[in-house]
Design a protein around this nucleic acid. Structure first.
Length: 155
DNA sequence: GCCAACGTTGGC
DNA sequence: GCCAACGTTGGC
């Protein structure tokens, strides 16, 4: 089992939206970056867990957790000419982009803000903290997973 | 709104 | 295969 961090703009899709769809899960689509795609296609496994991160908002923060509930599969929006994620070079024979299903698991009692993570010495090496990293899907170590969960559950 | 840090594209 | 120009992300 591995740990990940997924970014989402709360205006587009927030942890509240994720929680409301907890029964059926949520299709996570629209990843259009090759490095993120490779993680999604090659390394994410059913049962993995992830931090849900709110980006491009007032208080960028990890706000909760979710789990991967499917294998990765070709991103249907890449085939849809009506979709802004349409990519003519992605075909059913050779899909270029992938999606997966995730399911809400927890909302943190206290969001763990980017500022707090930057200040925490133990999180210096975090993918998210490394300068200029903008990946929308990125790996998280087990130590980081434990620490941030503890920070988020603390009141 | 600004801008740094990437990623992508395309000419050569 | 290089690299300049351009586009995007996302914190501030």
């Amino acid at each position: 089992m591995r740990y990940w961090l997924f970014k989402s703009e709360p205006d587009e899709y927030s942890i509240e939206d994720l929680q409301q769809s907890a029964q059926q899960g949520t299709c996570w689509f629209g990843i259009r970056n090759y490095q993120a795609r490779n993680f999604l296609r090659d390394e994410l496994q059913q049962g993995d867990q992830l931090f849900f991160y709110h980006s491009s908002c007032k208080q960028p923060a990890i706000v909760g957790t979710a789990s991967i509930i499917s294998h990765s599969y070709p991103d249907p929006t890449a085939y849809d000419p009506q979709s802004s994620y349409f990519d003519i070079k992605s075909t059913p024979e050779q899909p270029r982009w992938f999606a997966t299903d995730i399911q809400w698991r927890s909302t943190f009692h206290q969001p763990v803000t980017l500022a707090a993570m930057k200040q925490h010495p133990a999180l210096n090496g975090m993918f998210l903290i490394k300068k200029g990293n903008r990946l929308s899907i990125q790996p998280v170590s087990e130590a980081e997973w434990r620490l941030i969960n503890a920070l988020g559950e603390a009141s």
